[in-house]
Simulated assay, not measured.
Amino acid sequence: MKLTKIDSRKTRLPYSTAVLVLGISSIALCCCYGVPGIATGIISLILYKKDYATYSKNKEKYDNFDSLKTGRMLSIIGIVMSSTYIIYLVVVLNIYGMEAVSNPKLLFEKMR
């Protein structure tokens, strides 16, 4: 019985690192009024979709699908956190006004 050598070298998905970095940055940027966090999260999800299509064509060829999935989850979390922060800002603006958003002491005084 003759054993044949199988090419076991796997390649990396082209955007997996970018998806992971953008997912992390979407969480980090959620505190910057929410907009950068949503933008980086959406870009991350678009890149995920491209890489997932590439991965689903030939699953045995790629080895870093786990980091792609992690980046997707982080970008979803970042989008949710950014959206929540934007909703919070809109509510505070409607209830307390622009002065309270820019001055935390005034916000706490109006809340009492």
Rank of each mutant, 00 (worst) to 15 (best):
T4H: 15
T4F: 14
K5E: 15
I6D: 12
S8P: 00
S8E: 13
S8T: 14
S8I: 10
R9V: 13
R12P: 00
R12W: 07
P14G: 08
S16P: 01
S16M: 03
T17A: 07
T17E: 08
V19P: 03
V21I: 15
V21D: 04
L22N: 06
G23R: 10
S26Y: 10
I27V: 15
A28R: 04
C30N: 15
C31I: 12
C31W: 13
C32P: 00
C32L: 13
Y33D: 10
G34L: 02
G34R: 02
V35P: 00
V35Q: 09
P36Q: 05
P36D: 06
G37F: 08
I38E: 05
I38A: 10
T40L: 14
I46R: 06
I46M: 12
L47P: 00
Y52I: 06
A53G: 01
A53N: 10
T54H: 04
T54S: 06
S56H: 11
K57R: 12
N58M: 06
N58I: 02
K59D: 02
K59R: 14
E60T: 07
D63L: 01
D63M: 03
D63H: 08
S67P: 00
L68E: 03
L68Q: 05
L68C: 08
R72S: 04
M73F: 13
M73K: 10
M73D: 07
I77N: 02
V80A: 15
M81G: 09
M81E: 09
M81R: 03
S83Y: 07
T84W: 15
Y85Q: 11
Y85H: 15
I86S: 04
I87D: 05
I87S: 15
Y88W: 14
Y88R: 12
L89K: 10
V90G: 04
V92D: 11
V92P: 01
V92R: 14
L93I: 00
I95T: 13
Y96R: 02
Y96G: 04
G97V: 01
G97M: 01
M98L: 12
M98K: 12
A100F: 05
V101I: 14
N103L: 02
P104N: 11
P104W: 11
K105V: 07
K105N: 13
L106M: 05
F108C: 06
K110E: 02
K110F: 06
M111I: 13
R112C: 06
